[in-house]
């Protein structure tokens, strides 16, 4: 069976969803479709059966620009390497174009064992990022600061707050800051301990959990100024809790390293594969790239 390799286009969405359904038995999340249509840069590569034109393989990509100090870096965040069973001998073709990209960093956050094996062989650098959970409860002082912030008309302080696909993009001009604090946060499928405790009690009393979809842990994926964040973390934690029902923050260890260890719990490690191509990575200790988790393993 011969195939043709080409770039993915917006008009391929329906066919890619079909491919997900065929390979995984389920279509991707709504967030995926929204992100797919919202991105105008490289969306990945696909394989078409050259006889009937059907898409039989896909290796997706979301492309982002991120500021790192004075530099603006381009990230090709690859995800979802899926190929129909009968066409698996062509699957490497989907990876090859990424090796040729020389103007950015190619990343992969969702490698299963097989994909990891391939990426390592192709000299993708493997990085383990330890994560910490920022402990709740909220302090009285942060609640007071939060109230003061509200009095100063918080709406004027929020330069940007939207939920583009999955998660939350925030750009805050807080009174104490001279620069805007930009962040990207995304929920992870875990509840903080305080929610688990409440749910345990409610299970015992009412035979059902009290808090189901809200107050999850959210992971910080991007921040433009780590130092600013650390300075404002206490008040920010309160803000996110009150405004967005964020039950706790998960921070990569290098962001949390300046924080008091008593406020942190070790959580888990993320494995990231990264290919720097022609861009030096020596100074990059945290990957400033937006991550798009589909919660489906690559196949």
């Amino acid at each position: 069976m011969s195939v043709v390799l080409r770039k993915v286009e917006h008009s391929d969405l329906e066919h890619i969803q079909k491919l997900f359904k065929e390979v995984y038995g389920q279509t991707p999340t709504k967030g995926f479709s929204a992100a797919f249509l919202a991105h105008n840069d490289l969306l990945g590569y696909c394989l078409e059966d050259s006889e009937n034109g059907f898409i039989v393989g896909y290796f997706g990509c979301f492309t982002y620009w991120r500021e790192y100090g004075e530099r603006s870096l381009k990230f090709y965040n690859t995800h979802s390497w899926i190929v129909k069973q009968d066409y698996r001998n062509h699957s490497m073709k989907l990876l090859m174009p990424y090796l040729k990209l020389k103007d950015g960093l190619v990343t992969n956050f969702s490698a299963n064992r097989k994909v990891a094996q391939v990426l390592e062989k192709l000299k993708f650098e493997k990085r383990e990022i330890r994560n910490y959970i920022l402990k709740i409860p909220l302090s009285i002082s942060s609640i007071f600061k939060q109230m003061r912030l509200k009095e100063q008309d918080l709406n004027d302080s929020i330069l940007e707050a939207h939920q583009p696909c999955v998660g939350l993009c925030l750009s805050l001009q807080m009174p104490a800051l001279d620069k805007a604090l930009k962040m990207i946060l995304k929920p992870i499928d875990r509840k903080p301990i305080w929610v688990q405790t409440i749910n345990k009690f409610s299970q015992f009393l009412f035979r059902k959990p009290l808090i189901t979809s809200s107050y999850l842990l959210w992971k910080l994926h991007y921040v433009n100024q780590v130092e600013l964040l650390n300075r404002q973390l206490e008040i920010l934690k309160t803000y996110l809790f009150l405004h967005y029902k964020i039950g706790g923050l998960v921070l990569p260890s290098n962001i949390g390293k300046e924080l008091d260890a008593r406020n942190l719990n070790y959580s888990h490690s993320d494995t990231i594969f990264i290919k720097a191509n022609e861009i030096s990575l020596t100074e990059l200790d945290y990957l400033f790239s937006e991550v798009f988790y589909l919660n489906i393993a690559d196949k």
Binding site: N89, S91, M96, L99, K114, V118, K121, L122, K123
Partner: peptide, 28 residues
């Protein structure tokens, strides 16, 4: 069996057998 893992296994086996190392550009 010449899928992605097959290709990687093949490259690894050739590298070991001939004591050579391929660049990723070679793999293309």
């Amino acid at each position: 069996n010449w899928d992605s893992i097959g290709a990687i296994n093949l490259i690894t086996a050739i590298e070991e057998e001939f004591d050579i190392e391929f660049d990723d550009e070679d793999l293309l």
